[in-house]
Nucleic acid binder design. Structure first.
Lengths: 124, 124
DNA sequence: ATTTTTCTACGAATTTTTTCGTATAAAATT
DNA sequence: AATTTTATACGAAAAAATTCGTAGAAAAAT
């Protein structure tokens, strides 16, 4: 069972998931676009994440290259489960309704969802 | 702008939202069904929540009665927004797909969602 | 009337998460 | 070759969140 990443750790994982294996410097720059954050802060976090097994790293070069060690999908699924419990009393449907209601979805996205629903209905 | 409740605070809000105005004792008992938690811990949390304006309270009787001071819907919407950003890089649709894919929805629920989609499509 | 139980208030200890300073070494620049 | 830049490691401070002990008053039970 893998430990649940904190919010700051999650931001780093996003960068790694979206950009693949990266140096601390790169990750720090990506984060920096949204809010200023010290280099050693990011470094320390990534070292902690390494100890926790959230990332792996290659230390061949002087500048170590970090890589996400947990899958995006699985992590999202885990966190979503916890979130649904915490915020929506376990009702995923309420969450879906809320999400659909709030965010304007494009026709394409709505079609995707409809397709998914049909698929579920057939299987069910 | 209301402050974002922490996880422990959220658990308490759930109890208040679902049961209406309640005493500390009652809230503590409800929480206790899921995991043991000391009475004064719950008390302290609720006092902090009062200071933050997350709950209001009636102190007429010796046993104070607390009530959620923020709306469930609005709170869920706020938290959902943050969550989508943190975990799904801002893509609410990805979240919906994930939620739909994982949790088996009943036919009724699926119908509800379809209805909602149609409504959105018409308005759009 | 005493004792026990049930409250709140308050302060502080603990734990978790985040941030950063300093030391040191390697690499790049001048 | 000397200086400046760029890395990591490490420890610890700071901030945020959680937990709990103790005191004292009110209410309930004996």
């Amino acid at each position: 069972m893998q430990s649940k990443p904190t919010e700051a750790e999650l931001e780093i994982l996003q960068v790694l998931w979206e950009n693949g294996p990266s140096s601390v410097r790169f990750v720090n720059e990506q984060l920096g676009e949204r809010k200023e954050v010290g280099y050693t802060t990011t470094l320390k976090l990534m070292q902690i994440m390494y100890e926790k097994g959230l990332v792996s790293r290659n230390t061949d070069a002087r500048s170590h290259i970090y890589e996400a060690a947990i899958e995006r999908d699985a992590t999202q699924r885990n966190l979503l489960g916890t979130f649904v419990d915490n915020v929506f009393s376990g009702s995923a449907m309420n969450l879906v309704m809320q999400a659909l209601g709030n965010h304007k979805a494009s026709k394409d996205e709505l079609d995707q969802i409809k397709a998914l629903i049909e698929k579920i209905e057939k299987e069910g």
